[in-house]
Design a protein around this nucleic acid. Structure first.
Length: 151
DNA sequence: GCCAACGTTGGC
DNA sequence: GCCAACGTTGGC
């Protein structure tokens, strides 16, 4: 089983929203590297939910991948801000996953904490100027993260 | 609100 | 294929 980190702005979609919805299609990713990570996810993989563009940014909870290789429906919706006119139903360009809610950490792990605990090579989210919204998390790093949230 | 980082677009 | 212009992300 692999671990991932997925970013969302809480004003757009937060861990609270996912707790309410229980499962949700992770739509709107329009970056090829991030999409490639999404398509390599497997059922049962777990993903840390990261709140970006908020105060403070950081990891707030845990999700599970409950459906893989989902065609992102927003790419065909001309009313959506994620609409992609270059995509077609015959040859969709954007794939994603459905995530399921697992837990909200009692105390989140802020970006400051992450910077203290991990090097940029260990955890990409602490890399300077990092804009990738979906990234893998090394197994040992994931265990460390889960331990931190239990304290 | 600012701005650095960086991905994408399009002219050539 | 290069690269300047532009748009977006996201921390601060």
């Amino acid at each position: 089983m692999a671990y991932w980190l997925m970013k969302s702005e809480p004003d757009v979609y937060s861990i609270k929203d996912l707790e309410r919805d229980r499962t949700e299609i992770w739509d709107g990713v329009r970056n090829y590297q991030a999409r490639n990570f999404l398509t390599s996810m497997a059922l049962g993989d777990k993903a840390f939910f990261y709140h970006s563009n908020t105060k403070p940014p950081g990891i707030v909870g845990l999700m599970e991948i409950v459906e893989t290789n989902v065609v992102d429906p927003s790419q065909f919706d001309s009313a959506s801000k994620y609409y992609d006119p270059k995509s077609s139903t015959e040859k969709p360009r954007w794939y994603t996953v459905t995530v399921g809610y697992l837990e909200t950490f009692r105390t989140g792990i802020t970006l400051d904490d992450l910077r203290e605990a991990f090097t940029p090579d260990e955890l990409w989210v602490v890399r300077r100027g990092n804009r990738l919204s979906v990234m893998p998390v090394d197994g040992a790093v994931a265990e460390k993260l889960l331990n931190i949230t239990q304290t």
